[in-house]
Each structure stands twice: as structure tokens, then as C-alpha cells.
Write a protein that binds this DNA or RNA. Structure first.
Length: 422
DNA sequence: TCTGGGGTCCTAGGACCC
DNA sequence: TCTGGGGTCCTAGGACCC
């Protein structure tokens, strides 16, 4: 058996842990730049606020309905996620952190009859230790555990656990799951399945394997088997190193100034270097891109990107920045209002398997030492305590985050203070 | 000049996930 | 003024190898 633990309305729940005033009220969390809704409380869902709803279009609606609106606070959510995952890890033999708010558990070696009770214990302890409510689905495959989890949230929120333990349990959950809610079915496949009169997960399990293979390829066949109870995906408890790394942002305000955009791109490149070093990899392809705001019909549009090959794979921020800025120089055209830029890194190899260049003259040991010192200082003293000069200090390009909550758990200056009268 | 049978690597595009 | 930011896997086709 597998279980899927999923935090309820995770970002909203994180905000609620530190803010007693927003319990039982409609709450939404917005994407970067306060663009659109990416998390909703149950009360907000009940008001009909959709995932992805545009913030600027709904300003009046939010005010009229007393909706509490937050900018996203990833420092808080990331730290809360760590706490939830650590709490679960202490209670089970083997788990996989699947996303910021989800974890799979392998119950392979657990006494069978105890699973539901154990799941309830996990729920209680996570709530007690972190303040975050979770729901748990238990089933013979990961895909069915996802189905069970969704079923709990929708139909048994007060219980919070659903176990698929028989054909009857499975059918009950599957018939109540629309195809678009199945793990692995997105917008396109849902449309295609509906056109062939397949509307729920149970109907899908009756489909012919060859037909699925033709329409949805092997990934679809695996999904079919998983829904039928045959394991195709096992627990993946050792995250493999990333094959591509991307850091990009929309600017809070459109930017024309090459200096500001240079600082932004340098910062993105530095962040790529950090991520590479964190997973002990090096890379030799740097890809820079630059956009104007495609939603503005009234402004001239420009998009360009440049891919640069490095002679030797590196994870030095200094070197990655140098190439990224060379790329930027080649694509930047003045006169446009830029909205977004980014740096992508690929051609990633483990740092101990770097093919060195016979004619390389760069003193790599110096960079390596410098990066190590920089990472250590930033780890101890906070991000960007030490940075490369070209990243600048202005951050004129930074995100719009007008309604961000405090970093309650990651910054001493922002920790909650409690006053008591005796 | 054309023929056969076996491969690999790379890229672009399309689907999906959170 | 205002529209997020990351990732994965699979397939088909082309270039190339012996």
C-alpha cells in the first residue's frame, strides 16, 4: 500500500498558522508579482474564486466579500513544508517528498490492519507540531492513492483519511473522480476522453489498453494499469539531480534601463550557480532570454534569446554571470519596455565528472574556493549577504509583493512577539 | 552507383506535474 | 499599471556511424 499525504490549501494554511484573524474567512494567496490566485481557502472556493483568477480584475470582488489577500511568501511556505516533511519522516519507514505540500509513503512493510489508524496519527501529529491540516489517501498504487486523497478532501473532510482496500472502495472513489482530476490527465487528454464518452475514472478503467496506447502512449497505459491496481510507479526517495535549471522573473515594473536588466540577469545567473552547487553539478550551456509584456497590445513587442556554450563545465557564479551577460549584450535592444528575463542552465554533469579543456587557462581552484566561502557566509548570515558586484544593490526590478506576510520562521527580525499580562 | 541492416545522439514539440 | 515560476517524460525525425 501507498499513502499520499497532501496539505490542505497549503499556502493559505501556512498564513493561518501565524494569523488568528484569518481563520474561517475567505483567504487567497497570489502568484509572484501579485498576478493571479494560486491558493484558496475553502471559504474562498465557496465564493466561486477560481484558481488562476486575475488579481487586478477581482480587486472589487475581494473587498466586497472581505477576502484576505496575500502575496506569496515562499520563505515561509518552504520552511513550513520542511517541518511537515520532517514530522512525517519520523513516523514512517520510507517516504518520498513529491512537492512542496505532498509526500508519498510506502506502507509495504507495515502491518496491514494498522494503516488507517497510523494515518490518523500522522494527521494529528502534523497538525499538533506544525499547525498544518493534511488529508491522507491510502491505496495499492500511487495513482489510486491520489484518487483516494482527493476523495477524502471532497467527500470526507471531517475524517481526513480514505483507504482503498477493496474493489468496492475503489469503485466508489473512481466513479466520483472526473477524468481531468486524475494524476496524468491534463486539459488536452480530458477533452479527448470526454469526446469518447469517458467522463470519470471508473469509465476509464474499462478502456482497452491498445486504444489508450494509441491515444495516450505508454504514459497513458501506465496510468491505466495504476488505476486498475497494478503498480507502475514505485517510491522515489532519492531525488535525482536536475537536468535543467531555470531562474526567471517578471519585473515588478517594466524596465527600459540596460543597467537594471543587467543586474537582474546577473542575479538570476548567480541563483543558477547556487542551485548547481547545491546539487554538486556543473553545466556548460547557458541560455538567456528577454521579453517585453506580451499582454500590452499598445507597445512594440520584442522577444529574443541566446544560447551560449561554455568551453568547460562550471558551477562558478562568476563564470555563469559572465556568459549570461555576454548573451544579454547580444540580444538587448534599447527602446523597449521589458517585462521578464531569465537564465536557463543545461548540459549538466556531476561536478566530479567534468571534462576539462586542454587549453583552459582559468584558475578554477580560486573560483571554487570563493564560491564555497560565499555559500557558507550566505547560509549562515542570510541570502545575498555576499554577492557578485555586478548584481548591484538597487533591485529596481524586484517583484511586486504588496501584501506579503512576515517571514515568521526564517528571520529573527520578523518573528512573532507575544505579550502576556499576569 | 546503389544496396542492407544495425545502431546512436540530438532536437523540437507536446503532453503532463506542482 | 495589472496576466507565476519552476520542473518531468515521451515521441518522432534527422543526421550521422559502421
Amino acid at each position: 500500500m501507498f499513502a499520499l499525504v497532501d496539505c490542505n490549501n497549503f499556502y493559505v494554511s501556512c498564513e493561518r498558522v501565524f494569523n488568528g484573524k484569518i481563520h474561517h474567512k475567505p483567504v487567497v494567496v497570489l502568484s509572484n508579482n501579485d498576478g493571479c490566485v494560486i491558493a484558496r481557502s475553502n471559504e474562498a472556493k465557496a465564493l466561486g474564486i477560481k484558481m488562476g483568477a486575475l488579481a487586478f480584475e477581482n480587486e472589487d470582488f475581494f473587498t466586497k466579500n472581505n477576502v484576505e489577500v496575500f502575496s506569496s511568501n515562499y520563505a515561509l511556505y518552504g520552511d513550513m513544508s520542511d517541518r511537515v516533511m520532517k514530522t512525517i519522516a519520523e513516523m514512517v519507514p520510507d517516504m518520498e517528498v513529491y512537492s512542496i505540500d505532498e509526500a508519498f509513503i510506502d506502507f509495504h512493510h507495515m502491518p496491514y490492519e494498522d494503516l488507517e489508524a497510523l494515518a490518523q496519527k500522522i494527521r494529528q501529529r502534523v497538525k499538533q507540531y506544525t499547525g498544518i491540516p493534511v488529508s491522507i489517501g491510502i491505496a495499492p498504487t500511487k495513482t489510486l492513492a491520489k484518487v483516494a486523497n482527493r476523495y477524502t478532501k471532497k467527500y470526507l473532510p471531517h475524517i481526513g483519511v480514505y483507504q482503498i482496500d477493496s474493489d468496492h472502495d475503489a469503485e466508489k472513489a473512481l466513479v466520483n473522480t472526473s477524468v481531468e482530476d486524475i494524476w496524468g490527465v491534463g486539459y488536452k487528454y480530458a477533452k479527448m476522453l470526454n469526446e469518447h464518452n469517458i467522463y470519470n475514472a471508473l469509465e476509464l478503467t474499462y478502456a482497452k489498453e491498445e486504444w489508450i496506447r494509441q491515444k495516450m502512449h505508454v504514459v497513458g497505459v501506465r496510468m491505466l494499469h495504476e488505476l486498475q491496481g497494478t503498480i507502475c510507479y514505485n517510491l522515489d526517495n532519492e531525488p535525482s539531480p536536475k537536468k535543467g535549471i531555470c531562474v526567471s522573473r517578471s519585473f515588478g515594473q517594466s524596465q527600459k534601463d540596460v543597467k537594471v536588466i543587467t543586474e537582474a540577469v546577473a542575479t538570476f545567473a548567480a541563483r543558477c550557480g547556487e542551485k548547481l552547487r547545491k546539487q554538486q553539478s556543473c553545466a556548460h550551456i547557458v541560455h538567456v532570454f528577454l521579453y517585453t509584456n506580451r499582454h500590452r497590445q499598445d507597445q512594440p513587442q520584442y522577444f529574443n534569446s541566446k544560447v551560449l556554450q561554455l568551453p568547460t563545465s562550471t558551477n562558478s557564479s562568476i563564470e555563469i554571470i559572465r556568459y549570461a551577460l555576454r548573451g544579454l549584450e547580444l540580444i538587448f535592444k534599447s527602446g523597449y519596455s521589458y517585462k521578464k528575463a531569465g537564465v536557463m542552465i543545461s548540459g549538466i554533469v556531476p561536478e566530479n565528472q567534468v571534462q576539462i579543456d586542454l587549453f583552459d587557462t582559468r584558475k578554477r581552484e580560486i573560483d571554487t574556493k570563493a564560491m564555497k566561502a560565499l555559500d557558507e557566509l550566505n547560509r549562515r548570515m542570510g541570502r545575498d549577504t555576499v554577492k557578485i558586484a555586478v548584481q548591484g544593490f538597487g533591485r529596481d526590478w524586484h517583484l511586486r509583493q504588496e501584501r506579503k506576510s512576515r517571514c515568521y520562521t526564517t528571520r529573527w527580525q520578523e518573528i512573532l512577539e507575544v505579550e502576556a499580562w499576569g
